[in-house]
């Protein structure tokens, strides 16, 4: 029984390693494109997306470090509510900023339509 679980563990480790290598290689050769990772539809970079990216990465990396740091690896006993509050603040800011930006772009398209009498060339929000 122990041998079976050991074999399964090694298979899983190998599978995850292969998956990780594939993802990194695809990013490096450009098949997975990250160029618009923090961009808005109009092409400008969004600070709220960048902040969301940073916090997701930091909290995700912290969680991973805590899980794999233990011997044997284990889920943390408690996750402080402040972590969720921080993620909530970041996500909330992103959502509100996106709402403000969309409202602005809709308004600008309406103005374009009113002044030119044609559909706006601006990208849809």
């Amino acid at each position: 029984m122990e041998t079976v679980s050991l074999v399964i563990a090694w298979l899983l480790a190998g599978f995850l390693a292969a998956l990780m290598v594939i993802i990194v290689v695809l990013i490096l050769i450009g098949r997975i494109k990250l160029d618009r990772l923090i961009s808005e539809p109009n092409g400008d970079a969004s600070l709220s997306r960048f902040q969301f990216l940073i916090f997701t990465f930091v909290i995700g990396a912290s969680f991973t470090l805590i899980v794999v740091g233990g011997d044997p690896p284990r889920f943390p006993e408690t996750i402080p509510s402040e972590i969720f509050v921080l993620l909530g603040i970041s996500a909330g800011t992103y959502a509100i900023a996106k709402g403000i930006q969309s409202n602005y772009e809709i308004r600008m398209r309406e103005i374009d339509r009113e002044t030119t009498g044609q559909e706006s060339m601006r990208p849809e929000p």
């Binding site: 899983l12 995850l16 390693a17 991973t64 470090l65 794999v68 044997p72």
Partner: peptide, 14 residues
Amino acid sequence: SPTTVLRYEVLLFL
């Protein structure tokens, strides 16, 4: 062990 290998894999990936 597999867990040690997995630990280094995840850290390297991140």
